[in-house]
């Protein structure tokens, strides 16, 4: 039983990173209709910025703040410089654009910082919390806290502030928003900035565990895509629950389903996703949209 609970905990802690990345995917998708395959690489860039700041002598927490702000700026710049030229209904073009961003960012990171994995010190120290035969590392607990705080901030921003309201208005119906005098371009870049800031948190939480390398977020991105599906990409609560669920199912599948092991453990999680999609295409928490002919 202890082992089961420990594996559940481990899975949930892994899922925290997926949840944060999935949230970033969701915000971008809602705003610009883009399945942003470069979201993981953007998170990598954020983690490298934080690391470079600590190397320059800046303490870890200010370094993280700098990385988050820099990511937000980068997100706005990418929207403004690249993404806005592709119309939102061109799903395939947008996805391809995401791929080119992924390749480009990967190349830049590899050129600037090299491909050797680097140790990224945990901002939460290196202690372990033991309770009832179970354990959590400071990094795991801190990761949950940081991601949780980010989600809370996002929830408040999106539902309680005028800024968030306008952001949602533009994302949901750009034309009506335009009648209200909102410049959609400006607000969509704000959406990208918010998404990249959340993605940056995902990268910073993942880096101490995974080791900083250009390919650090490849697997988490795949998992985040699954999380967005199972939870419903249009729901902010949904993607977070989805992320945790994917982490949990992967850990349990690898341990308890014979034959899956450490590489096919994702099959269990993905099978669950596909089952959910077939029953409820918009995901567990997603809303079906009504189309008028």
């Amino acid at each position: 039983m202890t082992e089961f609970l420990q594996i559940v905990l481990d899975g949930l802690m892994t899922g925290v990173v997926y949840a944060a990345l999935a949230l970033a995917l969701g915000v971008v998708f809602q705003g610009t209709g883009m399945l942003n395959l470069s979201q993981g690489e953007l998170a990598v860039v954020a983690a490298y910025i934080a690391w470079a700041c600590t190397q320059a002598g800046i303490p870890i927490w200010p370094a993280i703040a700098i990385a988050i702000v820099a990511s937000a700026v980068l997100g706005a710049v990418i929207y403004h410089g690249v993404v806005r030229f592709v119309p939102p209904h061109r799903e395939d073009s947008l996805m391809t654009l995401g791929v080119t961003l992924l390749l480009g960012l990967n190349a830049i990171v590899s050129m600037v910082w090299g491909t050797d994995p680097r140790a990224f010190p945990s901002p939460f120290g290196t202690w372990v919390a033991n309770f009832g035969g179970l354990r959590l590392t400071s990094q795991q607990l801190g990761g949950v806290a940081l991601v949780g705080a980010t989600m809370l901030v996002m929830a408040v921003v999106f539902t309680r502030t005028t800024f968030g309201l306008r952001l949602r208005a533009v994302a949901q119906n750009p034309r009506s928003a335009a009648y209200l005098g909102l410049r959609s371009g400006l607000w969509l870049s704000a959406g990208w900035a918010a998404a990249c800031a959340v993605g940056a948190v995902a990268g910073i939480v993942a880096a101490p565990t995974a080791g900083l390398s250009p390919a650090m977020m490849t697997v988490p991105l795949l998992m985040a895509l699954a999380a967005a599906n199972i939870g419903g990409i249009s729901s902010r609560v949904g993607v977070v629950v989805g992320g945790l669920l994917i982490g949990l199912l992967t850990a349990i599948g690898g341990r308890y389903i014979p034959g899956l092991g450490g590489d096919l453990n994702v099959v269990f999680a993905f099978a669950a996703v596909i089952a959910v999609i077939l029953v409820k295409p918009a995901g567990l928490f997603g809303r079906e949209s009504v189309v008028r002919a």
Binding site: V82, F85, R90, L103, G104, A107, I108, S110
Partner: peptide
Amino acid sequence: EASAYLAQLVFAVVLGVCVIVAP
């Protein structure tokens, strides 16, 4: 040195420009 990643960057930029210029 590092030509491989510069090449990858050029590849990415060319593709990105194609997507934007020729939708």
